[in-house]
Amino acid sequence: MKARIGGPSATGSTSAPQATGRTGPALRVEGVWKSFGQARVLRGIDLELAEHDVVCLIGASGSGKSTLLRCINLLEPVDAGRIVLQGEEITAPGADVNRVRRRLGIVFQSFNLFPHMSVLANVTLAPRKVLRLSRRDADERATALLDRFGLADKRDDFPDRLSGGQQQRVAIVRALAMEPDLLLLDEITSALDPELVAEVLNVIRDLARGGMTMLIATHEMGFARDIATRVCFLDDGVILEQGPAGEIFSHPREARTQQFLQRIVEAGRL
């Protein structure tokens, strides 16, 4: 493999319309609104990620974290606003959804591995069918990634034979195999037993060190403090407050942020 996945040069493999590193933000979200029926879930979200940023989204359950990530991935259409990925507006009417999604990896809370396929097939499906890699190239790429994350011996197992932590690491590898420019992670440790959380978070730390740009919805405040270049507090569909992790956690300005963090502390999670 030429470049370390997620490393600064990884973007070279997907034909981004712009030279990377030269210009503006990796991702810009401008005034995004989203409702489900009467429920206004996102009410004007503005957010910007530079290359290699690791931004953590925190906020109460139902505040709209998952919805925001799903909108960025175009799994949900936005009602208003724009989402710009490396200078290209992906919410534009004519945008090629499938091409955009190749450049955006997303990992879900519930893993969503394909249960009828081996680990290797899970990881190689998209590279083969979407990027049109040969089976050999795809296998090679997948094997290198599985190796790197300690999953080499699980290659031929089916997902139901793996622990939750292993399944989630496979899901991460599956997203990485597409060599995305930006990785979206939606509470990827929430469905895991406590003793399995660390192995998954270590994978993310590793990716962050490698320079992967990531937007992470999480309830793991310790982890957010550790790796986030910035923390955004989402409250009732708006980003109420954002800043460096130390600042948000130690000196939250907004009353709602203070309340939220207070509850987290009481729950023993900070």
């Binding site: 799994l75 499938n98 969503n112 979407v130 599956r174």
Partner: peptide, 21 residues
């Protein structure tokens, strides 16, 4: 539906998601 969402999020077309997943 999360199975289709997972497939689509990897860039598979709707037909590919149906066919392979």
């Amino acid at each position: 539906p999360s199975q289709e969402a997972a497939a689509r999020s990897l860039g598979l077309t709707q037909f590919q998601a149906l066919r392979y997943v």
